[in-house]
Amino acid sequence: MTVQPAPAPADLGAPIADWVRIEDLYDDPYPIYRRLRAESPVAWVPAVGRYLVTSFEACHRIEQDADTFSADEEGSLMKRSMGHSMLRKDDPEHQVDRAAYGPVLRPKAIKETWTAVFARNAEKYLADFAAAGPGADLHLGFAAPFAAENLREIMGFRNATQEDLQRWSQTMIDGTGNYADDPDVWAKSAASSAEVDAAIDELIPVLTADPDATLLSAVVNAGLPVEAIRANMKMTIGGGLNEPRDVLGTAVWALLSNPDQLAQVLADPALWPTAFEEAVRWVAPIGMYPRQTTRAVELGGASLPAGARLGVVIGAANRDPEQFEDPEAYNLNREKRPHLAFGGGTHFCAGTWVARTSVAQVALPRLFDALPGLRLADRPAREGGWVFRGMLELPVAWN
């Protein structure tokens, strides 16, 4: 479909990057990010109707100043797709919702309750994937069902399948990234949203009467309003599935493309967490999220008016040469520097330890142990996306 570029604010205060196209961002955003950083790290991009922020310094500043850069954006695509979740709230409202998540997702609970679940699911879906034989797609055949089943169990959707969560997640996050305003995308997102509402409504009385260790039980019994429960669960279905799924695929793709680094990790399993962190830096699964200015402010050489809609481009910040040496390369031996793949400040990703544990501690070592000689297949791997980015296909072979 043809989309009309968004009109620029009257008091723009920044260069206009009218050469940026959504389809190019989807295919390969990194050349675009390099040019934007070089020309202006804060630029108005008509194609997406917001200022894109592409330098590490500016993105980090935004995360540390919630008073100036609000998460509660007007006209939010995420609100339209999923409802008003904690990701689009500022404190103190944000903290009220987030507090209910703590007991379920903190490292102690991950270790004592959920690591065993991750291990069981890894064994099941690795066995299924191995049975498919060499040439199978690791992204769809292992990473996606593994991440989806882990999330289904953590969230407590006993009345849904992992296939349901995959469908819900993809269609709703397509809505949050629907900058082209495609009506078919909105229709699919709305249908999944309604299914999630129905599943939650069915479980609320069950979990009120008989609480368990799941996330849905925690938020129900924390006394959150039903609309907050629904919105936060939809937000979690989106990021909680795509982040571990996509970093798992990216890490495998990176290691198989760099045999010397793979050999390093196989010789020293203590490096699996390092391989994970470099993968999530190299290709940030959540590549961009919005903020809105509450006052006029100078940022990255631009003079932004109050109410300016920003895109905080983590996918660009994590490849900023001012922060990382040779940032376009996957290199697990690089100097350790902080990245922004899990956000920062009060909105630091609540599911960080789920991703780190399920992927770095469980899935990656078991995958390479179960499939000796794992390597890329003859059919090429593909990745895509910019608001969310990850593998689309990852065909592999093994001995």
Rank of each mutant, 00 (worst) to 15 (best):
A99W: 03
A99T: 15
A99Q: 14
A100I: 01
A100E: 01
Y101W: 15
Y101Q: 06
G102Q: 13
G102S: 13
G102H: 14
P103Q: 12
P103M: 05
P103A: 12
V104S: 11
V104N: 09
V104Y: 06
V104R: 10
V104P: 08
P107L: 08
K108W: 05
I110V: 15
I110E: 00
I110W: 01
I110P: 00
K111I: 07
K111F: 05
K111Y: 06
E112H: 11
T113L: 14
W114N: 01
T115L: 13
A116P: 01
A116L: 07
A116N: 07
V117W: 02
V117D: 03
A119L: 08
R120I: 02
R120A: 14
N121D: 09
N121C: 06
N121V: 04
A122T: 10
E123G: 04
E123I: 08
E123F: 02
Y125C: 03
Y125D: 03
L126C: 08
L126D: 04
D128G: 08
D128A: 13
F129Y: 09
A130G: 06
A132M: 15
A132C: 11
A132H: 12
G133K: 10
G133P: 07
G135Q: 02
D137W: 00
L138E: 01
L138I: 04
L140N: 14
F142I: 11
A143G: 06
A144M: 11
A144C: 09
P145Y: 04
P145S: 07
P145E: 03
P145Q: 07
E149S: 03
E149V: 02
E149T: 05
N150V: 05
N150Q: 05
L151I: 07
R152V: 06
E153V: 14
E153M: 14
M155K: 00
M155T: 07
M155G: 00
G156D: 06
G156C: 11
F157T: 04
R158V: 15
A160C: 15
A160M: 14
T161W: 09
E163I: 11
D164K: 09
D164F: 04
Q166V: 12
Q166G: 11
S169C: 14
S169Q: 07
T171G: 00
I173K: 10
N178K: 05
Y179C: 01
D181I: 06
D181F: 13
D181C: 09
D182E: 11
P183K: 11
D184E: 13
V185T: 15
W186H: 08
W186Q: 07
W186L: 03
W186F: 09
A187V: 00
K188C: 06
K188T: 09
S189E: 06
S189N: 11
A190R: 12
A190I: 00
A190S: 13
A191D: 14
S192F: 00
S193L: 02
A194K: 15
